[in-house]
Amino acid sequence: MNERTRAGVIFTYVCAALVVAVCLFPFLWMALSSIKVLRELYTIPPVWIPTVPTLENYRTVLFDSNIPRYFLNSVIISVGSTTLALSIAIFAAYGFARFRFRGKAYYQSFILIGQLLPTAAIIVPLFVTLRYLGLVNTYLGLILVYMIITLPLSVWMLTSYFRAIPVELEEAAIIDGSSRLGVLFRVTLPLSIPGIIAVLVYSFITTWNEFIFALTFATDSSVKTLPIGLAEFTTEFDTDWGAVMAASMIMTIPIAVLFLSMQRLFIGGMTAGATKG
């Protein structure tokens, strides 16, 4: 695409700058707040740049709170639920994308059912279900519950990515003697890597930030997750806002860096002529 005009290039950079500004603005505000002293957090007019930057808030978060432990819990739970959801979803999505069977539309809608029930309605009976299974206050409990959120996302998105892959590629492999599963793993998945990464990142983040289920189903410090840690900085009438901001930075930056490191896998774009086998 090197024949783009100069105006087009400028337009691209302007748009990119706009996206960066919109996405980063509140984030920068948080970052600045996290190094402000209490007095400068709420002033009229607002203070942009802290006059006495401090790392006190980070010290509080890292050494005087449960955040480090909750970070570990969050990693385990998010990795667990993302992996589990993705491995189940790959098969389901493949089934939906490549086969015709009776009632398919109903099964596809059923995948969404957990998300259609209002949270307020689902939370009590879900808690009862988890107790029945003996999974309250366990990693597995939260990992399972998060299937309600991550499965619809994973199944639906992967189905659409699989559909975008030309059927001819799979037919060629089948003619060469591959089994259905062989086709899925050797042809379809490698071609869907950008899609899988996108789904992975988003299910990971969704569970990483989930609050209400975590609040209800994880009441013990050994399984509490980061959003609960944030809530612990709030007392009855006050919030340690600097600490909340510092903790949010600690929650946000690793994920953005993780995604940055995955960019290599994202360059995708099938090579010219791939469809011709």
């Binding site: 009590v124 107790r131 209400i212 209800t216 009441t219 013990d220 709030t234």
Partner: peptide
């Protein structure tokens, strides 16, 4: 002692009571 947070406390208390746990 189990330490609770004020954010979401009413939901959490009601969920626990309502589900018998």
């Amino acid at each position: 002692i189990e330490v609770t947070t004020s954010d979401g406390l009413p939901q959490r208390v009601l969920t626990a009571m309502q589900s018998g746990a």
